[in-house]
Design a protein around this nucleic acid. Structure first.
Lengths: 237, 237
DNA sequence: TTCTGCCTCGCCATTTATGGGGAGGGTGAA
DNA sequence: TTCACCCTCCCCATAAATGGCGAGGCAGAA
């Protein structure tokens, strides 16, 4: 087991260009001896990237049909933090069933396992494993590899992040304590008047903080500023 | 190594009550033979919980001094997704130095390693390891255990999540596609008019979506709704 | 079938936020 | 010391959001 993990990690360590992700998924697929491996991530700017072994037919169709908006795997993983066996997801809707059938028709295996990963600044990534197998076989596969795959997924994500944000921590524009406090209260739903009262200052002063924070964050309005502050991890609601 | 990991996991598996986290951190500390182990998490409602081996003196002082608002460890981890050696953090500010000195005075070791974990619904957790050691010793400790600790952290978080959200996926109030789209555009800084134009509907219709989403999210105003939707992972900006 | 939820649109009045302008005192860094 | 940044307060006019009223059509679930 430990030996295998080493093999997996070697494949990932070799990724040194953006295109390398593709090769890494192929390498991982061959090592695991399964049908498909796909790594998919959304960076801090909301751009989506994918690298994997799905046929280009399927990728094209996926994009064309805008499956991103209803894929139960994506949707399910967005709501959880634990890896998920596709069988556990909600495939009950008509659209989901049609999607699954369409996927099978394009060479996607009937079993899947996905590890969701989250980072700061809204980074969100998925490592998808896909195979044709019975439920039992797939369960055995998962219980054998789940630990290793967790590590693998993290290493993948580390690589992705190193391309995405070379500085690792760009930390964005720091807000002053009062600005942070003000934005936090606003994010909690208080009106400016309430927030000012809460902070024991005049509403005008509070306004100055919000405006100042807004400018630092490059936001068009207060709501945008709150969204950015949240996404950047500058505040916690 | 594999044996040790089994030991670690056994400690965590035994957690069956809320209070069990405390014992688990003690168990983990003893197995790793270090000074402190602390698990800290913020649940979906923004409540904070901690379990660990820090002295109650230090915990009290930490809360009393409101160190939460400036702790470089917390702040640093909020910005990254990779585990972090405390030495890499920014301790340059006066407040940070004072905090560090205060921590040492309360029995906190000079070296630390923290694994940040994120989940859906704004869940955010930290597994802190702390010890008295030289930089070299600590580096060796980290490189020896980092893989295992990643797994351990995930198992911890899985437990925490099972207490936090017994249903595993409460998924919150689902927004309709149009509501999601509307909230997303608003979160990106568009005004209602702009967002409506973007979606090709009347401003009034867009307002209905926002209002509807606001009610579903239990938010007091649009900004609050955006903050909640973001925290719940219902939208990505 | 009935009912619920979703999508679409309109008007009204009121509250709230925004975008400018100004001012003074504090603290820490160069 | 000077400069920059932070904290605090005020006024004014306009733009925008909110709350509540109404309406119809269309789909899927009970």
């Amino acid at each position: 087991m430990a030996t295998e993990l080493q093999d997996f990690l070697e494949v990932i360590q070799q990724v040194d260009t953006f295109e390398g992700f593709q090769e890494a998924t192929v390498g991982l697929r061959d090592l695991l001896n399964i049908t498909h491996v796909v790594y998919h991530w959304v960076n801090s700017v909301g751009e989506r990237f994918g690298a994997g072994t799905y046929s280009s037919d399927w990728v094209d169709r996926y994009l064309e049909k805008d499956y991103l908006r209803m894929d139960p795997v994506l949707f399910g993983c967005f709501q959880r933090f634990t890896p998920v066996n596709w069988k556990q997801l909600d495939w009950s809707s008509k659209a989901a069933k049609a999607f699954f059938r369409d996927a099978l028709d394009h060479g996607v295996g009937n079993q899947g396992y996905t590890i969701p990963l989250r980072g700061p600044n809204g980074q969100f990534a998925l490592l998808n494993l896909n195979h044709n197998a019975t439920d039992d076989q797939w369960e055995r596969f998962i219980s054998r590899y789940e630990r290793d795959l967790m590590i693998v997924a993290h290493e993948f994500n580390k690589k992705a992040l190193s391309f995405d944000a070379p500085g690792e921590v760009q930390s964005g524009p720091a807000l002053s304590p009062r600005e942070t406090a003000a934005i936090t209260l606003i994010a909690r739903g208080l009106s400016r008047g309430q927030a000012a009262a809460e902070m024991g200052i005049s509403e005008h002063t509070l306004r100055v903080y919000i405006e100042s924070a807004r400018h630092k964050l490059g936001a068009m309005n207060t709501t945008h500023a709150v969204a950015r502050a949240l996404s950047l991890g500058l505040i916690i609601v």
